[in-house]
Amino acid sequence: MLGSESLKKIDKEVAKYPPDQKQSAVMAALRIAQEEKGWLSPETMGFVADYLDMEPIAVFEVASFYNMYNLEPVGKYKITLCTNLPCALSGANDVASYLKEKLGIGFNETTADGKITLKEGECFGSCGYAPVFLLNNRKMCGSLSFAEVDRILAELE
């Protein structure tokens, strides 16, 4: 169900914890699965449960508790914009309006071509670089002006 590269990564995570505590690797395993599949379908979560000897419901509890997991398909690129107070003081709401207008979508929506999903996020612990958004859970883009947003969007293929 998951590729061998992903399984190798998951095994490396499992090895960090005591032998009788495989469940400790579930957050990492779900992240790695999501990186391969784009989102966590019930089948993918079921596979992770089997792989770590967990009950499927225990895996779903984790996947639904932490908000960086995608429980539904998302676009090729997921943009999560922080709108919390420190970012808002530095123009995050203007950036939100700009992104929504430019992409023609609201928060929790995906562009018609399936390319970009826009999400609203909570504090990323990067308020000194406000406003910030997170690209595909990996790349933090900060000090966002409209021009900077244009530049980043133009680079997305």
Partner: peptide
Amino acid sequence: HMGYGAYICGEETALLESIEGKK
């Protein structure tokens, strides 16, 4: 150990639960 988006895990016992692979 990587968290994945939950402010509450900054609370120390929530963090421990999280390392144990739980909510």
